[in-house]
């Protein structure tokens, strides 16, 4: 089974992922890729607890995500990958992970970031990383929910904010 959803979302597992995407795509395995979260087991446990009933969630580091065993899990399961920022999918792609499309589903307001969509706020660093992902052949799609329109993100990345 190919990867069902690779999503950048600073809320990680939450209502839109569990009920919106999860209800439609029915994942059985959710990999949360975050080096920082692997160092905070108590916080990681909150997200693992929040996984949909029919799935199990794991918090894995970027090096762990790049292991062959992770790819085997993804192929064997109905899988989601969740990233808290733009950095993680870029590191995965640079490391050879077969990432074809990334859903940008939730990057919320923070100092220095400006809105390109109501649920996507970017700073210059985010734009550069997303452009790098795009140059590596990854399709970037902004879409908060499966029932809402999907927007190609590249046109939003060209101008400086």
């Amino acid at each position: 089974m190919p990867l069902l959803l690779a999503r950048i979302d600073d809320r990680l597992i939450h209502g839109q992922v569990v009920h919106g995407w999860g209800g439609t795509l029915r994942p059985t395995w959710i990999g949360i890729v975050s080096d920082a979260l692997t160092r905070e087991p108590a916080r990681a446990a909150l997200y693992v607890f929040a996984a949909p009933e029919e799935s199990r969630a794991e918090v894995i580091s970027i090096p762990e995500a790049l292991r062959e065993s992770t790819l085997q899990t993804i192929r064997a399961e109905r899988s989601f990958l969740l990233f808290p920022s733009v950095l993680e999918p870029l590191r995965l792609k640079e490391g050879g992970f077969p990432l074809e499309e990334v859903n940008v589903g939730g990057l919320h307001h923070a100092p220095g970031k400006s809105a390109v969509l109501p649920y996507v706020y970017l700073d210059q660093g985010d734009r550069e990383k997303l452009l790098a992902l795009s140059r590596l052949g990854v399709r970037l799609v902004a879409q908060d929910l499966p029932t809402n329109p999907a927007h190609p993100l590249e046109p939003f990345l060209q101008g400086t904010p």
Partner: peptide, 13 residues
Amino acid sequence: DLAAGSCGIATRR
């Protein structure tokens, strides 16, 4: 509202 939503997680955190 949702224990497994952003509000529930942020509250526990």
